[in-house]
Simulated assay, not measured.
Amino acid sequence: MTEALYLNDSYMRSFDAVVTNVDDTGVYLDRTAFYPRSGGQPSDLGVLIRGDQVFRVEGVEPSEHGICHRAHGLSPGDKVKGEIDWERRYRIMRSHTACHVLSAVIFRETGALITGNQIDTDRSRVDFSLESFDRSMIETYVRMANDLIKEGHPVRVRLMTRDEAMEIPDLVRLAKNVPERESVRVIEIEGVDLQACGGTHVRNTSEIGEIRLVKAENKGKSNRRVYFELVR
């Protein structure tokens, strides 16, 4: 299986690796900093370099054989250097952490759970189990999220045993869907939020900048969809 370097260091832009397998879908490495599409976060893009040859990575997917990089032309045993499209990755990191802050505010104010999400470089969305739809209140929640973002809260990665994670009431709503494994990766925004999450995040909320409400809409009974974007 592929060693997932991004789990411990979201800021790793390049890395060295060895090709372990190749099939019709792409290339497998012994280690990677490329994030595979999952949990509402899109995959990283970038390149794999072998000598003076550059192979474009057009997507990354999780699979039962490891992490598959959609690139072609490499062979098992090849030594490569991976380089991530950092500008794209960093915007996704900022958007993902903003999603955690906003969902923490809405959960605190209403008790609403997250029913879906899609993170992107420009516009992201989060679905909430809100009974009523009130755009003015959602605008208020976005302002509250921006206030927390500006305060500059540290963001940390923590590993908990599954038993420890399931004992935290606000974490159970997310951790209960985590596959059975000994440890649960948790993203802690100090003083703001604690969520089970396998995605990439910034180190401090001040890196997010400001978010702007794009639109909010009904998506069925007790399901409200909120779109937001990074201001810069």
Rank of each mutant, 00 (worst) to 15 (best):
M1W: 09
E3C: 00
D9N: 10
S10N: 02
M12S: 00
D16Q: 08
V18K: 14
V19Y: 04
D23H: 02
D24R: 11
V27S: 02
D30F: 03
D30T: 07
R31K: 08
R31M: 06
T32C: 01
F34W: 00
F34Y: 07
Y35D: 01
S38I: 11
G40Y: 10
Q41R: 03
V47T: 14
R56K: 14
V57N: 00
V60D: 00
H65N: 12
I67Y: 02
C68K: 03
H69P: 00
H69M: 00
R70L: 10
R70I: 13
A71I: 13
G73M: 11
G73P: 10
G73R: 09
L74N: 08
K81H: 02
I84R: 02
W86T: 04
E87A: 05
I92W: 02
M93F: 05
S95M: 12
T97Y: 08
F107W: 15
R108A: 11
R108H: 08
E109A: 11
G111M: 09
I114R: 07
R125P: 04
R125H: 10
R125V: 08
D134S: 06
S136C: 06
R143E: 15
L148H: 02
L148T: 01
I149M: 12
K150D: 08
E151H: 06
G152L: 12
V155R: 06
R158G: 01
R162L: 06
I168Y: 10
D170M: 14
L174M: 09
L174Q: 04
N177P: 01
V178E: 13
V178I: 15
E180S: 13
V184N: 09
V184Q: 03
R185D: 01
V186S: 14
I189L: 12
E190L: 07
G199D: 03
H201E: 02
E207Q: 01
R212F: 09
K215P: 05
K215S: 10
E217L: 14
K219Y: 10
K219F: 13
S222R: 15
S222V: 12
N223K: 09
V226C: 01
R232N: 13
